[in-house]
Nucleic acid binder design. Structure first.
Lengths: 248, 248
DNA sequence: CGCTTGTTTGACCTTAATCAACCTGGGTGG
DNA sequence: CCACCCAGGTTGATTAAGGTCAAACAAGCG
């Protein structure tokens, strides 16, 4: 198995914004770029884990398929992210291009050699994995306690954060994935995703513009509705305590 | 943040049984043991991450609390597991003793020094983190697609596996945690946990013996009901293909 | 022995899944 | 160029799984 890495895209912890191009990414800079078209598979669940990848442009989905055909998307990857950084013999998930993608490939052997040699590379990998683990825990929290609306709000906030980290100044978030991708990521159905987005629009919190773009109109409200309790506040904070709410 | 570690307890991947006392655990062997009584907090979400722990005996729960009081248990730790192995400045979760617990403590500074010095310690840590990541992904799959019965069956199977790895020869699984702990771990309510266990008992798949012990009567059936599709088979495998089932 | 906390069971209700119909927009080919 | 096609998306009606509320029951424990 291996760990899908997340440059900043999966980093949901507020306060850790700085986009330091880690020494990790530098590893790939001299390697040739490869291209994938939308829908192509980069790595396949069960295959021998031979390479580590750096995503240069485009987006991918990371997923597993259950025996009965159900699909679970455990994450999305975007430009700057690293993929396949693991120390297991086989990949435990599939990675598929959502948009046209360019990547750089490093053999796992070289990767491990570089780590053994370079003194500051080890810590960089540890940090990276810690970030991923934190993101995984956030996702577990989302999946075990949040309702449909909270899930969508959390998702949109994270995508907004990623967009802003990438240097954008606006609040228009690009969502390259389909509704089905979002549904499989949030543990919902496409109908519920669609309905919830419609509801958020009619509440004036967001504004959809085509299938793959959403404008965040009220970020504070969105953060409040995400249900993380005082974690995402920026320019808005409720003076009144939230009502009791213990059950699921 | 940091990563809750899992010696073998969170390792759900079949085929990776061997309980090698890693070089990681050797790090702690010379340190003094500390005791906690049931209910005591070992580490607190938000505190500065100063130590790494090795669980010698007993069990702990790892959880986060949402703003509105909801609790999400992201894992359980048992004898042999390592806790707090992370490279973040603050703990992102709380660890609380379920039973009386004894642990050994290593300062994070020492831990990082040891890693920098010892050549085979780095890879051990990487592997550990990869295992944890795999376990986290399994949990995401469970939380996003499985129904109550499948969740309970998956949980019981994992606990059985852990019991067997620990050297037991029987199929009586000890569950030190309460129903509420199980519910908060599986994203259910205590009522649903209770009802589902009752149902599994009446189906003859398990047999409860007191609050903290469950006997697995039909392991193959349990594996089938866990919904992982041909992943946990041991001595039993259905000849007939499963019916189509794509939706959540 | 009698609390207190944890667990089970029952009745009812809410949320999101399911089933189904219709809409939309970006190609493609006549 | 436009009609049609079709995958992806939206909206509506209904249902079922599991949450909620409530009450009774069990098991430690002081």
């Amino acid at each position: 198995m291996f760990i899908e890495s997340a440059g900043n895209s999966l980093r949901t912890i507020p306060g850790s914004f700085a986009v330091q191009p880690t020494s990790l990414q530098a590893l790939f800079s001299k390697l040739p770029a490869e291209s994938l078209s939308a829908g192509q598979t980069l790595i396949l669940e069960g295959d021998v884990a031979t390479s580590v990848f750096h995503v240069v442009t485009g987006s991918l989905r990371i997923f597993r398929i259950l025996g009965d055909g159900r699909r679970v998307i455990t994450g999305f990857l975007h430009a700057g992210d690293i993929l396949g950084m693991s120390f297991k013999s086989h990949y435990i998930y599939t990675a598929e291009a959502i948009t046209p993608v360019t990547i750089r490939r490093l053999s796992r052997k070289s990767f491990e050699n570089e780590i053994a040699v370079s003194p500051d590379l080890g810590p960089a990998v540890f940090h990276q994995m810690s970030d991923e683990m934190a993101a995984a825990q956030d996702q577990m929290v989302l999946l075990s306690t949040k309702n449909a609306e909270e899930r969508l709000c959390s998702f949109l906030l994270k995508e907004l954060q990623r967009t802003l980290n990438a240097g954008a100044l606006q609040t228009a978030v690009q969502l390259p994935m389909t509704r089905l991708d979002i549904a499989d990521y949030l543990g919902l159905t496409i109908e519920t995703v669609s309905r919830t987005l419609t509801k958020l629009s009619s509440k004036g919190v967001i504004e959809t513009a085509g299938r793959h773009s959403v404008k965040i109109l009220k970020r504070g409200k969105l953060a409040q509705m995400a249900g993380d309790g005082d974690e995402y506040e920026d320019d808005w904070r409720p003076a009144t305590p939230q009502p009791e709410r213990i059950r699921h």
